[in-house]
């Protein structure tokens, strides 16, 4: 339902409402891109990173993900660019850079 709404807008009618407006797809907000709010993006220097995980722990948007190699990567689909990860990084491995229009 949510996908239909997010993609097709006006095709979504009252008939598509679930009983009691209950949302039965848990966590479907994950479909929403919040990365386009961003004016700055975090860049991680893997040389400096010691995989401590604080950027993951303190991210308000749950946008930092643990990857297979043990490093943490920011999912730019969600990252709003607040810069908290850069602030809490004990090794100063994360820098915030301006987003530029391409």
């Amino acid at each position: 339902m949510a996908e239909k709404r997010l993609r097709t807008g006006s095709d979504f009618t009252w008939r598509d409402m679930e009983v009691g407006n209950i949302v039965t797809e848990a966590g479907n907000a994950g479909l929403r891109r919040t990365g386009d709010w961003r004016s700055r993006r975090p860049i991680t220097d893997k040389e400096k990173c010691n995989k401590c995980g604080l950027c993951w722990l303190y991210c308000p948007d749950a946008a930092v993900k643990l990857s297979e190699d043990g490093y943490y990567e920011t999912d730019l689909f969600y990252c709003k660019g607040c810069g908290i990860c850069a602030k809490v990084c004990p090794r100063a491995a994360i820098t915030m850079v301006e987003e530029e229009e391409k």
């Binding site: 979504f12 009618t13 008939r15 598509d16 409402m17």
Partner: peptide
């Protein structure tokens, strides 16, 4: 954008 549809339903 959705309240009215909820009420009509």
């Amino acid at each position: 954008d959705i309240y009215s549809e909820a009420k009509i339903a």
